[in-house]
Simulated assay, not measured.
Amino acid sequence: MPDAADADGLTVGQVSARLGVTVRALHHWDEIGLARPSLRTAAGYRLYTAGDLERLHRIVVYRELGLGLDGIRSVLDDSTADVPGALRAQRAQVAERIERLRRLGAGLDRMIDAHERGLLLTAEQQAAIFGPRWNPDWSAQARRRYGDTEQWRQYAERSASRGPEEWQAVADAVAEFDRALGDAMDAGVTPGSPEANRLVERHREVFASYFPLTRQMQVCLGRMFETDPGFAAHYDGIRAGLATWFRRIIDADARAHGIDPDTATWE
């Protein structure tokens, strides 16, 4: 075996530093026969020649392009290998990954916007979907008031995946529920009755379009529907006294499930 001085080669450590490849990777490539050092010192240390270094340069280039080690071996050692074809196939895979990352980036942008804005609709779209009395500033007001809550995060996650058609379906479901609520009150449905309890359950299902609603949280909403001027005006605009009646059927249903409406909290 020639001495290191005679070989005039590079050690594993020197090659690692020069190519930016770990010593472990060089040892692995040696073990699998992909890039073996041509020389060794009398003491048995590996030494890489200029030719070895050239091969390693090519391995590093192809690896950075995403080729696997078997593919690299074929490109370097198989004289019949279709190198342009292999590179085109790799390019197609890279293009697919880029497209997936682009979609991921777009999804992240929507999620960020949803957490910051709530509704990802223009003012015109909101008016068309929710009606002319809808105030586009309501979403920003809700963000300032509830932005640090778990419910806002859940709402944002739902909002990020919705466009105008999905929000129209939500608005239609809410409008249909409001009509059913008014019709039930007109029909004399009494709080605590099966019909009233079904309406309360339906309200939780419809409201789940925004975030999951527990019975205790529903009781808190019922209070707000009756006492908040905006909500009270909405329900009483459907039927006079509907805001109070709605709270009563919510409270009755809560009592039937062991919840005291007077002490219920947002949980």
Rank of each mutant, 00 (worst) to 15 (best):
A254W: 12
A5V: 13
W134K: 03
G68E: 11
A156E: 08
R198W: 13
D148N: 05
A35R: 00
I112Q: 08
H234C: 02
G51D: 14
E150T: 14
A232H: 09
R55N: 04
Q126W: 14
V189G: 03
V60Y: 01
A264P: 00
R143K: 07
L121V: 07
R88Q: 11
A4M: 08
R18Y: 12
M185K: 06
R36P: 01
A233K: 01
G13P: 07
L65G: 04
S16F: 13
L34N: 06
D3S: 15
Y45I: 05
L120D: 11
G182V: 06
L53G: 02
D260F: 02
E64L: 07
D3H: 08
R110F: 06
E166S: 06
A142V: 04
T41F: 09
Y146C: 09
V170A: 08
D262Y: 01
F207T: 07
F231H: 14
C220L: 00
H27Y: 08
R153S: 15
D236T: 05
E64Y: 05
E226F: 03
V94M: 14
R145E: 13
R144N: 09
A256D: 10
A142C: 04
V61A: 10
S79A: 15
A89G: 11
E31H: 03
Q90W: 11
R110V: 06
E99C: 03
T265M: 00
R55A: 05
A173D: 13
Q168I: 00
E205L: 14
A128T: 11
T80V: 11
P261T: 03
I72H: 07
A128Q: 15
R215Q: 04
G85F: 06
A232N: 07
R143D: 01
L221P: 00
D30G: 02
R103V: 13
V12M: 14
L34R: 09
T190N: 01
P164V: 09
G258L: 04
S38F: 08
R162I: 08
V94W: 15
I98T: 12
A17L: 11
W152L: 00
D186V: 04
L76N: 06
D70M: 10
Q125K: 08
I72K: 02
G9C: 08
W134R: 04
A50F: 14
R117I: 12
T11H: 04
V75A: 15
R117T: 15
F177Y: 13
L34T: 04
D52I: 04
D260C: 02
A243S: 15
R24I: 07
D253Q: 12
G147K: 02
F211C: 01
P194H: 12
D236A: 07
G20R: 01
R18H: 10
L221S: 02
I98V: 15
A180C: 05
A106E: 13
R215D: 02
H115S: 12
R247C: 09
E165I: 04
T214C: 08
E96V: 14
P261L: 08
N197W: 08
A175C: 04
